[in-house]
Amino acid sequence: MTTSSLPTRRAPWGVHLKLLGMAVLWGASWPTGKVVAQALPAFTASSLRFALAFGLLLGWLWAVHGRSTCRALSSRQWAGLALGGALGVFGYAAFFLLGLQHVPAGRAALVVTTNPVLTTLLAAWWFGERFNRRIGLGMALAVLGASVVLTHGAPWTLVTGGVGVGECLLLGCVLCWSGYTLVGKRLLGGIDALTTTTVTAGVGLLLLLLVALAVEGGTAFAAVRDASLGVWLALVFLAAGATVLAYAWYFEGVKALGAGAAAAYISLVPVFGVLFATWGLGEAVDASLVLGGGLVLTGMVVMNRARR
């Protein structure tokens, strides 16, 4: 074995470890978000998170591409970025923290993991993307698992008004992220992932700030002033860890292993979400969470394998 071959043989393990770290960071974002949601108004907390993240992303963007990267964007691409920021940042972040004010973090993490189900269904309908019986089976398992988690083991109550406000808000997360993904496919072709994430974060931040000032006002500023060190550390983690660092590791994995292999690691996010919520927040793990979570994870694995 030559010396030059060593980095090539070791590199994949490093990529896999980073993707595992990404899943850990995204899983930890749910109990961490719960801490923030209980201490600060939702829109103000989201504004602080994305203000920190946007600053880091902007520095990263300039270091990689310089200041000329946004000048080459067309008006269509700017419109797509604005819509993506409204859905994927503003909408998702708002529903994320509003939902966590009503639902335990571990349960919320499992529900939102069904994002790929709606996205796959809409992409097959609108764009003619691949869809087969195995993908349909995976979707059915994931939806059944999510309904078990949502209703605490009584999925039939979905048609009898048994779902609360928090669960409905979490479904808003799913709708916003699916919309963001589909907008990206239709309008954001030719824009690199770092530019897309940075600009959409800036658009979402502006909307979050406007709504925070209009809806939460002076009360929100008082809550921020009185926030504990633990809350600020949670915000820094959400911005630097769960947003910027996890994003960097994810796209490094996409580049090295391909989108399908990298996306498969997302199936681990709810596992870590439940573990951290149980360990850090003392949330109970009941039978419906275990059963529903198992069905969701099985469905995600079936869908990913069927695509490949």
Results as ranks from 00 to 15, higher is better:
E216M: 02
V148D: 03
G202V: 06
G172Q: 04
V224Q: 11
V148F: 11
G230P: 07
G179D: 00
T157R: 10
L238Q: 12
C176H: 09
R186G: 05
A146M: 14
C168A: 15
L233K: 09
G179A: 07
D226K: 01
H152A: 15
L194R: 08
T219W: 10
V174K: 01
H152V: 10
V148I: 14
A234R: 04
P155D: 04
A214K: 12
Y180F: 14
K185G: 01
G179R: 02
L187K: 00
L187C: 04
S178W: 03
E216P: 00
G230D: 12
T219P: 00
S147R: 02
T198I: 10
L207E: 02
G218I: 10
L150Y: 07
R225H: 14
G161I: 06
G166C: 00
W156C: 04
L169E: 08
G230Q: 12
G190K: 02
A212M: 10
L213S: 11
V165S: 11
A214I: 09
F237E: 09
T157W: 01
T151S: 15
C168E: 13
E216Y: 01
V174Q: 06
T157I: 12
L171I: 13
T198L: 11
L187S: 07
C168I: 15
V174M: 11
A212Y: 11
T200M: 05
H152K: 15
H152F: 04
A222F: 02
T196R: 13
A227L: 08
V236M: 10
C173V: 05
V236P: 00
G172C: 07
G172I: 13
L209R: 04
V203D: 08
C173D: 06
V211A: 13
G217L: 10
V149I: 11
G230T: 05
Y180E: 05
T181M: 00
L171Q: 07
A223P: 05
T195L: 03
V159H: 09
I191K: 02
A201H: 13
V149T: 06
V165A: 14
G218Y: 00
L210S: 13
V148T: 10
L194D: 01
T151P: 06
L171Y: 12
A212L: 07
V211K: 04
R225L: 14
E167D: 13
A234F: 03
A154Q: 15
A146L: 08
V183A: 09
A193P: 03
L235G: 00
A222N: 02
Y180N: 07
W156P: 12
T219N: 14
W156L: 15
L206A: 15
L210Q: 08
L238I: 04
G172M: 11
L169I: 11
G179H: 00
G162W: 12
V163C: 02
V159S: 14
A214C: 09
A193K: 10
G230L: 12
A234N: 05
G166V: 03
V199F: 07
A193G: 05
L171S: 11
G230S: 13
A222I: 03
L188N: 02
R186K: 09
L235N: 01
W156A: 15
L208A: 01
W232M: 01
K185T: 07
V165P: 10
D226A: 15
I191S: 02
G145A: 08
G189Q: 03
G184P: 09
L182M: 08
L187Q: 01
T181L: 09
L188G: 11
V224W: 03
A193Q: 08
I191T: 03
L182A: 04
L169N: 03
G153C: 05
